[in-house]
Write a protein that binds this DNA or RNA. Structure first.
Lengths: 99, 99
DNA sequence: CAGTATCCTGGACGATACTG
DNA sequence: CAGTATCGTCCAGGATACTG
């Protein structure tokens, strides 16, 4: 699944997340600031995300495409699962006395 | 999201996929064969997946834990989305006459 | 058969200077 | 401000030999 390959890369999810929460197009520099990264990586990722039609470049800034939004929606449950999973793991860790 | 970090690594999904489809525990060598990888990587990933309680080591082989199964179930939609997404991308590629 | 140790290589990423 | 070019670093992953 090449999708997870893309999503697994640095700043992929971060960028999507920031764009989803901004609610409005963000400029390159704004995105760079909120995502706390360097132009080089941001640009690389942005190219990939645009090639994947997940991110689009409106007049005035970057935003999520409809596909991008649907993808974000799809990832949410995974997010929750991950939270529960993390809590669970930790709980088990904190309970060495279990036998 | 550290989960995607793990899932993004080579052989994470592949291993989960193979285990899900095997329907029965697989030995280290069997897993290595079906996943087409080397013992080094397989072992590394297996350790991580076991630490994450996604994969368990039954007597006689490796299998998915209940958490692992639920995760696989959660990933399916993403899988479908990716398929549609890929097809769509390709279609647009094949349709340069669009204006 | 199961898993580990070792060594090597490619590519992702980071910092930053620079052009349009 | 937007994006590109360059260069160095670091680590995931590949091949394989080896031990229990």
């Amino acid at each position: 699944m090449a999708l997870l390959d893309l999503l697994g890369r640095r700043m992929s999810l971060r960028v999507m997340w920031e764009l989803a929460h901004a609610g409005q197009p963000l400029t390159f520099r704004e995105l760079q600031a909120v995502a706390e990264t360097n132009p080089s990586l941001l640009n690389t990722r942005l190219k990939e995300l645009r090639a994947a039609a997940i991110v689009v470049h409106h007049t005035g800034g970057y935003g999520l495409s409809e596909e991008g939004k649907s993808l974000v929606r799809l990832i949410m449950p995974l997010n929750e699962w991950a939270a529960a999973w993390g809590a669970n793991l930790k709980a088990k860790d904190d309970t060495p006395a279990d036998s």
